[in-house]
Design a binder for these strands. Structure first.
Lengths: 254, 254
DNA sequence: TAGTGGTCTAGACCACGAA
DNA sequence: TCGTGGTCTAGACCACTAT
């Protein structure tokens, strides 16, 4: 008796903390500004560091913060709008398509890719690695898979440097009949994480594209976008323009 | 001296644990099967429960597991392919479009929505809440914002039940000129989480759609998809078919 | 070398679902 | 009521970056 229900909190501390921090970011910090370190912040809010970190993790997931080991936690700029498609149905690597080719190897496709291409389980495919940079920052890496049957004119014994251009050149000879995309959430593998300047396991948006030609899937691409910094746009009438960040207590993401 | 570098581990325990569990899920468990509880699993692997949970969290993020408080951890089925667009450019709510209308209110649009619509900051808009169910499971909730100027013929003083249908009916009178989409990662607000049968903060894919008519943005929708269970498909030539789960050590996501 | 975020531990208690 | 996952604590040590 006598214990009045002063607060029907039931809201987890880290959740409340997150909204408090979110509001503080809008009103008291500039983009790029560095926050106090985690130990200080935790002490200031009277919670354990792990609890504080739970709030920071969510804010980073939503693109509000950027944390770097050895450096600190900074206020992130609004997410970049990244045009993903449909880009008037052109082959990858044609003209200026925002991607930079890194290299190409011939290797057996992993099972999931073989399923996409409809090839046999142990068939080798040309695998072109590319990366996409926006505003000086790497935002995506991609593996483009091209089965040999899609590039019949490819001469054997190419130098590594000539491999990727030759595959793309042959691929462009086909008539592209359409493309197909899927987006899902994933976590960065070690290799991709390194290229994206993130830690392994960082959340990424995985974009899977199928390119159709000759009534088949002539090529497939698996692109890995940084989920914290990117907003993928699928423009019919042009991409959604990036606006300046707006304080918005109702927000789910930037 | 004497201390040979036996293992250049450097790989975090939870990361290694994740790959071990991932492989075990492929080889030793069926979809829907329930895993041992977290305390037992942690003991079995000789780690603290928090560390084990770090691995489980990632696997859940990647759609491999489903955890429910009071119940347990189960092996998740492969993600559902959910067609998002372009659906031959039709207005939402026209014909059978996979969504179920829940209700409609007239309220001031949050800042981010006002920016999408190009309306003033304190203008009220019709706000239709809808939900999308697939295979008996709610996969998305949506708020569809329609400024009054887009539905000029709407009669005032509608009963709550008649509100949403009336707004949609008026909206369909306009000629739809195009649509525009963006996808980004977010975390579920309390309200959405409840509707999606998830905890607040659960990872979601936020799809923002702009509908163009009369040279303006005539309506906008913000849809919130469960990131753990959904793969969003943007089909030109049809959505990517769901295939059965394939063991694939190279995976990033299902 | 100092300071940051990242990992890990060994507990405790709470909220929820099912029996 | 019991077992589950969810939250929280107060530490410790490690890996990385900048100086």
């Amino acid at each position: 008796m006598g214990t009045t229900q002063l607060e029907a909190v039931q809201e987890p501390k880290y959740w409340h903390l997150k909204t408090v921090l979110n509001d503080a970011l809008d009103s008291e910090f500039e983009v790029g500004e560095i926050l106090p370190n985690e130990r200080d912040l935790a002490a200031r809010f009277g919670v354990a560091r792990a609890t504080l970190r739970q709030a920071l993790e969510q804010l980073e997931l939503e693109g509000r913060l950027q944390r770097r080991r050895g450096v600190g936690t900074t206020v992130a700029p609004p997410r970049m709008g990244v045009a993903v498609g449909p880009s008037s149905d052109v082959w990858p690597g044609a003209g200026r398509d925002a991607w930079r080719t890194i290299g190409c190897v011939e290797a057996v496709a992993p099972g999931s890719v073989a399923a996409l291409l409809g090839t046999g389980p142990d068939e080798t495919v040309h695998t072109i690695r590319r990366e996409r940079v926006m505003q000086g920052q790497p935002v995506a890496t991609e593996l483009l898979y091209v089965p040999p049957v899609s590039v019949p004119g490819l001469s054997a014994m190419l130098s590594p440097a000539a491999h990727a251009p030759a595959v793309l050149r042959e691929l462009h000879l086909l008539e592209l009949e359409g493309e197909d995309r899927a987006v899902e959430l994933g976590s960065a593998r070690a290799e991709d994480a390194k290229q994206l300047d993130r830690l392994p396991g960082a959340p990424v948006l995985v974009v899977t594209t199928r390119y159709f030609a000759q009534g088949r899937v002539a090529a497939a691409a698996v692109a890995t976008y940084r989920a914290d910094t990117c907003r993928l746009t699928f423009g019919h009438s042009g991409a959604i323009e990036v606006t300046h960040h707006q304080p918005d207590s109702d927000r789910q993401a930037s």
